[in-house]
Amino acid sequence: AKPPKTVTVKVEVTNADGETQTRTVTLTNLPKDLKPGDTVTLPETGQTARIVEITP
């Protein structure tokens, strides 16, 4: 079996106070056609994050 493909992405997350924070997260099994501006759900927090940058 192939190991899951991990991708490092820079995302913007809005916290409970309405502040936008930029975080770098490593995600696995992202859709192939994901692009900056799309939103993903962070598995560890369940927060919705907007992708700023994808590092191949």
Rank of each mutant, 00 (worst) to 15 (best):
V40S: 00
K2Q: 12
I51N: 00
A49C: 05
R50D: 02
L27S: 02
G37K: 01
V40W: 11
E53C: 06
Q21I: 15
V7T: 09
D33V: 06
V11H: 00
E19Q: 12
G18T: 01
L30Y: 15
K5W: 14
V40R: 00
Q47E: 15
A49Y: 07
E44N: 08
L30Q: 11
P4A: 12
T22R: 07
T14Y: 09
T28R: 10
V11Q: 00
E53Y: 08
T48A: 10
T8D: 05
E12I: 11
L27R: 01
E12V: 11
L34W: 14
Q47R: 04
K35T: 03
L30E: 05
V52I: 14
I51P: 00
T6W: 15
P4G: 13
P4W: 08
T55P: 08
T28C: 09
T41M: 11
N29T: 06
A49K: 00
T20W: 07
P43R: 06
N15D: 11
G18L: 02
E12T: 09
T45M: 03
I54W: 04
T28V: 12
L42F: 05
V40C: 03
T55K: 11
T26A: 06
T39Y: 15
E12W: 08
P36E: 08
E12Y: 06
P4R: 05
T20E: 04
V52M: 07
P43E: 07
T8S: 08
P3T: 03
R50T: 15
L34R: 02
T24I: 15
V40L: 11
P43Y: 05
V52Q: 03
K32H: 14
T14A: 06
V40I: 15
P36L: 13
T14I: 13
P4Y: 08
T41G: 02
K5V: 13
Q21K: 07
P56C: 07
V7R: 04
R50I: 15
Q21A: 10
R23C: 14
I54Q: 02
D33Y: 09
T14S: 06
L34Q: 02
A49M: 04
I51R: 00
T28K: 10
E53K: 05
T8F: 09
K32C: 08
A49H: 03
N15R: 05
A16S: 12
T6M: 12
V13D: 01
T22N: 05
D38C: 02
I51G: 00
I54T: 02
L42D: 06
G37H: 01
G37L: 01
Q21G: 06
G18N: 03
V13M: 07
G37P: 00
T28L: 10
E19N: 10
R50K: 14
L27I: 09
E19G: 09
T39D: 05
L27Q: 01
K5C: 09
V13L: 10
T48S: 10
P31I: 13
P31C: 08
T45C: 03
L34S: 07
V7Y: 15
G18S: 02
K10I: 15
Q47T: 05
E44L: 10
I51T: 00
V40T: 02
T8R: 09
K5L: 13
T41D: 04
V9A: 05
D17R: 11
K2D: 11
P56H: 14
D38G: 03
T48F: 08
T20F: 07
T22L: 14
K5Y: 15
A49D: 00
T6Y: 15
V13I: 14
P4T: 14
P36Y: 05
K2P: 11
L27T: 03
V9L: 14
T20P: 05
G37Q: 01
Q47N: 04
A16D: 10
K2T: 11
L27H: 01
T45Y: 04
P3D: 11
T14M: 12
I54Y: 04
V25E: 03
G46T: 03
K2S: 13
D38T: 03
T41E: 08
V13Y: 15
T45E: 03
D17V: 09
P36H: 04
V25K: 01
P36D: 02
K10N: 04
G37E: 01
P43V: 07
D38L: 04
K32G: 13
K2M: 13
G18K: 02
K10C: 07
V7F: 15
P56F: 14
V11F: 06
T8M: 09
V25D: 01
T39E: 09
A16Q: 10
V13G: 01
K2E: 12
A49T: 02
K5N: 14
T22W: 11
K35Q: 09
T14W: 08
T39I: 15
L42H: 02
K5M: 13
T26C: 06
E19P: 02
L42V: 04
E53D: 06
P36M: 06
I54C: 03
V9H: 00
T14K: 10
L42S: 01
N15T: 12
